[in-house]
Nucleic acid binder design. Structure first.
Ligand SMILES: [Mn+2]
Ligand SMILES: [Mn+2]
Ligand SMILES: [Mn+2]
Ligand SMILES: [Mn+2]
Lengths: 221, 221
DNA sequence: GAATTAAATTAGGCAAACCTAATCTTTTTA
DNA sequence: TAAAAAGATTAGGTTTGCCTAATTTAATTC
């Protein structure tokens, strides 16, 4: 009969991971994908998944994968909201750098109260985007709709502005920064090689090749 | 051979509790006092105390009590530092009220990194006092020396200024606030009853009796 | 100083989240 | 389509930090 125990750190991180994985695969999320993302043994994930399913946060078809329920989805979104507001707050108010705030937020997202996170949000001017350019859901968990492409899909020869850089490691972010690829930077795709090949990018400063894997992480308008 | 595992939440809260209890008793701290303060069963405290002693954070004389080691003292002080900086930050930067920040800080003190807490501290102007008027230790764990009395010891008939109100519950803080007893408020002790009795206090606004227990929690200059 | 009471410790358990090794299932490949 | 490989689950353990009940030690009181 147990229900609604407490929203533990593990619970929030699992639901968030499932949300993110589902976002890019559209399919049911495999336990191994969760294990890989959270750096936890597969067997441990299976065990946790069973509990989360029992408690109604996800649906689990053994050997098939998992999907968030409405309840699980809501918790994932709210955790992401806290994460992004914290990141933005650290950058804007405490003048920290983009490549260090993600790890901080990964911890703080679990301990900051609704009251505090909403005060942060207000102080920031109720923004709907975080410093990586990712959208911040509102209190009800709704995202402001946005129509954008990744660099991998964007038209060639057209002036583009970077609107979002999806979660990358600090090393990768520094690499991109070195190339001048930061939020709001302008660029043009000069050419795109076939077969998921690299792109030839021109910025006001220089021209260079960018691997397709990176192109998929960069959203533009 | 285990040593320096990780500074868990429980570890930090125990050491902080021991520090605070030692502060007002001067004596070795009893396990029951810790249990009472942390709202944990006595037997659990005995178990935890044994572990903390094994790992060198405290010294434990069975049936006698515990004392912090240098190592334990350091962790306690740093946890208190984080706690107070967070409280002050929430009050000053997020405009939250005094009576709600303590509970927030009790959680956040365990997850805010040194980097973040130091940025907060700098943004606040490197203060050496928190919103309750309690001192904030510096990075090395040193308190700025201060010579003050509690209301219970302060001289009668002399103009005093409130410099600190020691940890009280939100209800108690509101009661004191209702009386006009807040940080930096001025007052005079008109009379003090014997046998730890109540004090007769005069503020610019009014005159009233204050229980000795409260007087011991209010520090003045 | 013996009996009562209070404080502290020991014994035995539990839940949350992990782990490794062994055992299925499912998918691929020959 | 049978064998091999990959993916997922089960079985059995561990660590942390907590709990209740029973027992032991220390402090009071008669
Ligand atoms: Mn992030
Ligand atoms: Mn996290
Ligand atoms: Mn406090
Ligand atoms: Mn705490």
């Amino acid at each position: 009969m147990a229900e609604k125990i407490n929203e533990s750190i593990a619970l929030q991180d699992y639901l968030k991971a499932i949300y993110k994985l589902a976002e890019k695969s559209d399919d049911a999320v495999s336990t191994s994908a969760i294990a890989e993302r959270l750096q936890i043994a597969q067997a441990s994930v299976t065990g946790m998944v069973k509990k989360l399913a029992e408690q109604g946060y996800i649906e689990h078809k053994p050997y098939k994968g998992v999907n968030l329920t409405t309840q699980g989805h809501q918790i994932a979104i709210q955790t992401i909201r806290r994460h992004r507001i914290i990141e933005l707050f650290l950058v804007e108010q405490l003048e920290m750098s983009w490549d260090e705030v993600h790890d901080e937020a990964e911890v703080l997202e679990h301990s900051v109260s609704d009251k505090v996170v909403n005060r942060m949000w207000e102080v920031l001017g109720c923004p709907d985007e975080d410093p990586h350019g990712s959208p911040i859901p509102n209190l009800k968990g709704e995202f402001k709709p946005q129509r954008r492409f990744t660099l991998a899909d964007a038209p060639v020869g057209q002036l583009l502005e970077i609107a979002r850089i999806k979660d990358k490691s600090p090393e990768e972010l520094r690499y991109l920064e070195g190339l001048g690829l930061v939020l709001n930077a302008h660029l043009t795709i000069e050419d795109r090689a076939p077969f998921q090949g690299p792109l030839l990018i021109k910025t006001p400063e220089r021209m260079f090749a960018l691997d397709n894997a990176f192109a998929q992480a960069i959203w533009v308008v």
